[in-house]
Each structure stands twice: as structure tokens, then as C-alpha cells.
Nucleic acid binder design. Structure first.
Length: 226
DNA sequence: ACGAGGATTAACT
DNA sequence: GTTAATCCTCGTA
């Protein structure tokens, strides 16, 4: 299904780097989703976390753990890794590095751009007031809900998958020259990881209201730019 | 086979 | 700030 999107689509080389580099590179990139209805949803990535692999006690692949769930992490760069947490939420990751090097970047928040009303519908619970834009994709579980991403994408290739692709950040966008707008902190929800819980492996766009409001463990801050 | 716990979220008090 | 929701995964037996 070659079309205009393919010209801008990030290829495997985009992901063939270490997770800290990719986590920063992804800020400002467009996450794009084509629904079964053919509608295209788009959002700008504003928050990411790097998971460094076998030594990283917060990573699913810590200690070379290799199971049915973590198998996609051992795949080539650009492999999509979607897992479920707490029985009800999905988290989207892009595997990076090299084959058999189980490292990945978690997408934690997106600024919605195209298809906002569809995202609102996908996230809406019955009998509730419509969600504000800033609540649609400001969290790893939220953005998967808004984009209709579940484990059907697990193990697929982001460089060739029809329903999901990535468009690199444009010149002058976040992640590029304007490093001063990028914040960095400990990762969220990994208190169990000992010394690795405090490592500054989370990156986010400082002035975005679409960053998750979850506080990184340890680092107490009213706003995620402390 | 069993059971604890999780890269979260929303709705409470 | 506290807690329920909800189910799959994985260590242990």
C-alpha cells in the first residue's frame, strides 16, 4: 500500500541505536496509526523512557530473561513490543540496538494532532464527560487506548507494518537543536529496580501539557521539569 | 498447578 | 493520599 506516508516513514536504521539515543530522537516524531476504517491518527511523541537491557533491573529483559513475553525485545531494531500491565492497559515500545540485544524505548506520552475526536471516542467511558485533549494520550496506557494499539502489534515491524508507523521529527522540532526544551528524570513506576530506579532515563518535552503527570519515583516535583 | 505482582489509570475520601 | 480494577506472566512447587 505505497503512498505518501511511506516516503516519510522511519526505517530500520532509525531504530538501530542505543535506547538513550533513540528515546531522545523520538521526541517530536509523529506516531501514526491507520485504523481499519482507513482513518489516520497522528500525534507527536512528548515523553519516552529508555530500558537498557540485561543489566537494567527495571527492564523486562534484565538478566537475559527471555520468555514468550519478552521475545520481541530480542528481535531486530524496529520490532514493536507491546505488553499488558495490571490486566487492562497496554504499553508501546520500540526495540532498538541490535539483534539479540534486548533494549527498547517505552512511549509514555503523545500530543494528539490528527483524529482527536476519534481518540476521544476510543478512550471514552460510558456516562462520563468527554475527556480533555490533555488527558487523551498523557500516559503509556492512555495513548495505547487512544490509538487503538494492543498486542496485535506485538512482534511486528514498525518499518513495514501497515497500521502503524513513525515519521521522524522535522528540522527545528523537539529533539533536534532545541535541547533546552527537553527534560530528563528518573523513570516512572520502577521502584523495585534498586539503583536502576533512580537513573535519569526518562525524557520529555518540558513545556508540553501532554506529558504524563505521573511522578518519577524518588524525584518529588510538582511539575515534571524539576 | 498455584499465587504474587506489575514499565497504569480512574475514582474515591 | 488511597485503592480497586483485572489478567497475564513467571517463579516456585
Amino acid at each position: 500500500m505505497p503512498d505518501a506516508a511511506d516516503a516519510r516513514r522511519a526505517g530500520r536504521d532509525y531504530f538501530a541505536t542505543d535506547p538513550s539515543t533513540l528515546a531522545q530522537r523520538l521526541l517530536g516524531a509523529r506516531l501514526c496509526r491507520r485504523l481499519p476504517t482507513a482513518e489516520v491518527l497522528r500525534g507527536a511523541i512528548v515523553e519516552t523512557e529508555a530500558y537498557l537491557g540485561v543489566d537494567d533491573l527495571a527492564a523486562h529483559s534484565a538478566g537475559w530473561r527471555r520468555t514468550a513475553r519478552t521475545e520481541p525485545m530480542y528481535g531486530p531494531p524496529g520490532t514493536i513490543y507491546v505488553f499488558q500491565v495490571y490486566g487492562m492497559h497496554h504499553c508501546l515500545n520500540f526495540v532498538c540496538g541490535a539483534v539479540d540485544e534486548p533494549v527498547a524505548v517505552l512511549i509514555r506520552a503523545v500530543e494528539p494532532i490528527d483524529g482527536i475526536e476519534t481518540m476521544r471516542r476510543l478512550r471514552q467511558s460510558p456516562g462520563k464527560r468527554p475527556l480533555r485533549d490533555r488527558d487523551l494520550c498523557s500516559g503509556p496506557g492512555r495513548l495505547c487506548g487512544a490509538f487503538g494499539i494492543d498486542r496485535a502489534f506485538d512482534g511486528r515491524d514498525i518499518a513495514s507494518e501497515e497500521g502503524l508507523w513513525l515519521e521522524p521529527a522535522a528540522e527545528g522540532s523537539w529533539g533536534g537543536s532545541e535541547a533546552s526544551r527537553i527534560g530528563n528524570s528518573a523513570r516512572v513506576g520502577v521502584e523495585y529496580a534498586g539503583a536502576w530506579a533512580d537513573k535519569p532515563l526518562r525524557w520529555f518535552v518540558r513545556d508540553s501539557i501532554h506529558v504524563s503527570r505521573a511522578r518519577p519515583s524518588g524525584a518529588v516535583a510538582k511539575r515534571p521539569d524539576a
